[in-house]
Simulated assay, not measured.
Amino acid sequence: MEITNKVIIITGAAQGLGRAMAERFAKHQAQLALVDLNEDKLTETVAHCQAFGAKASSFIANVADETSVEDLFEQISHHFGGIDALINNAGILRDRMLVKVKDGKIVNKMSLAEWQSVIDVNLTGLFLCGRECATKMIEKQRPGVIINISSIARAGNIGQTNYAAAKAGAVSLTVTWAKELARYGIRCAAIAPGFIGTEMTASMKPEALERMTSQIPLGRMGTPDEIAQAAEFILQNDYFSGRVVEVDGAFRL
């Protein structure tokens, strides 16, 4: 796919990986539909993209709400005349041990709300956006690409029962959709980032950050733009589908 002038939707575009991908595609003069719930930061992202001369518009939507997602894709399709690509990037963290034990007694448990909120955004949101994107592409007979953001945590990570389950699910959906949608000219792939330098990691305690970084064979965290570069490769390589690009500095959980 040639990125120039293509309509690309990015969820979770207000900051971090979403903003980095938006800015990289803006340099290609893509038409960007940027989605988030954080209106202030999303406005900043739109301005950054427009500064590169790209057409970029903001859309406020809750990806975990079916009606909100249906309305979102209707608006975007009407606004741009169609959709060429979706990057399912929106996600949240609610980390906690499944059960926490102190002096032989259970002192805390991951709550159902902590489980459900992450599943709702990171997996159900991905499903809803992917379904509506595929629907619009098929209706308009417009081939395209869906990219799901997974994580190396999909293999399982301490304190992330909810997140790991959602990110493993993201890969299963990717493979399934690649098989189902290929007949319509729709490719689907996933990216599994390792530890990436974002606002979230910047807020960590220096000693925790140093300990984490020391485990990465390349000796550093990745940058958001390196994830954006992986997304760029997927969009541009028309024979890549049903697979996961791991961008993790050779680190494995």
Score class of each variant (00 low, 15 high):
residue 119 I to E: 02
residue 119 I to D: 00
residue 120 D to Q: 10
residue 120 D to L: 10
residue 120 D to W: 04
residue 120 D to V: 07
residue 120 D to I: 08
residue 122 N to H: 03
residue 122 N to F: 10
residue 123 L to K: 00
residue 125 G to S: 04
residue 125 G to K: 02
residue 125 G to T: 07
residue 126 L to H: 02
residue 127 F to V: 00
residue 127 F to N: 06
residue 127 F to H: 02
residue 128 L to Y: 02
residue 128 L to C: 01
residue 129 C to E: 01
residue 129 C to F: 05
residue 130 G to W: 06
residue 130 G to T: 01
residue 130 G to H: 03
residue 131 R to C: 05
residue 131 R to Y: 06
residue 133 C to Q: 09
residue 135 T to C: 15
residue 135 T to H: 15
residue 136 K to E: 14
residue 138 I to N: 02
residue 140 K to M: 14
residue 142 R to L: 13
residue 142 R to F: 11
residue 143 P to W: 06
residue 144 G to I: 08
residue 144 G to N: 08
residue 145 V to H: 09
residue 146 I to P: 03
residue 146 I to Q: 06
residue 147 I to A: 08
residue 147 I to G: 06
residue 148 N to M: 08
residue 149 I to H: 08
residue 149 I to G: 01
residue 149 I to F: 04
residue 150 S to N: 11
residue 150 S to Q: 10
residue 151 S to E: 10
residue 152 I to E: 09
residue 153 A to M: 11
residue 153 A to R: 04
residue 154 R to Q: 14
residue 155 A to I: 15
residue 155 A to M: 14
residue 156 G to M: 11
residue 156 G to V: 06
residue 156 G to Q: 10
residue 157 N to C: 13
residue 158 I to H: 15
residue 159 G to K: 06
residue 160 Q to N: 05
residue 161 T to K: 14
residue 161 T to C: 15
residue 162 N to P: 02
residue 163 Y to M: 06
residue 163 Y to T: 01
residue 163 Y to K: 01
residue 165 A to K: 03
residue 165 A to Q: 02
residue 165 A to L: 02
residue 165 A to E: 04
residue 167 K to D: 09
residue 168 A to N: 11
residue 169 G to T: 01
residue 170 A to V: 12
residue 171 V to I: 12
residue 171 V to Y: 09
residue 172 S to E: 11
residue 172 S to C: 12
residue 173 L to E: 00
residue 173 L to N: 03
residue 177 W to T: 06
residue 177 W to F: 12
residue 180 E to K: 13
residue 181 L to Y: 05
residue 183 R to L: 14
residue 183 R to S: 14
residue 184 Y to N: 14
residue 184 Y to W: 15
residue 185 G to W: 07
residue 185 G to K: 12
residue 186 I to F: 02
residue 187 R to G: 12
residue 189 A to L: 10
